[in-house]
């Protein structure tokens, strides 16, 4: 079972060196225990571009699709047996990156 752990930022900006170090330790643990699928931090929402090609002609818009105080700052994708395991890892992830996070399951195939 895979879960997306989204890191929610509300204007605190990029991670501090101390947070980065804690994230590294957490990532190593995810890898060592077989939970790791993927992780990455995102550049600020100002750098986003929205594309709409539903009409056959791609339209590019500068900026994020949703302007809000809270935005996605990065994510983990983890493999976990069930939500209890995912929540426990997410709680540690939140502590490591010092941000609020959201856990959401991928649709099972």
């Amino acid at each position: 079972m895979q879960y997306l752990i989204s890191v929610i930022d509300d204007g605190t900006g990029p991670a501090t060196p101390k947070e980065d170090a804690a994230i590294d330790v957490f990532n190593e643990r995810l890898q060592a225990e077989g939970h790791w699928v993927f992780a990455g931090g995102l550049a600020s929402p100002d750098t986003a571009t929205v594309i709409d090609n539903r009409s056959g002609e791609a339209l590019f818009t500068d900026g994020p699709f949703l302007e809000s105080k809270e935005y996605l700052a990065g994510c983990w994708i983890i493999e976990a047996l069930d939500l209890d395991v995912a929540l426990k890892l997410a709680a540690e992830g939140s502590e490591a990156c010092n941000r609020k996070i959201e856990v959401r399951p991928f649709l099972s195939t």
Partner: peptide, 9 residues
């Protein structure tokens, strides 16, 4: 969908 487990914690 989120697989909340069926067990004693």
């Amino acid at each position: 969908a989120a697989r909340i487990p069926y067990r004693i914690p």
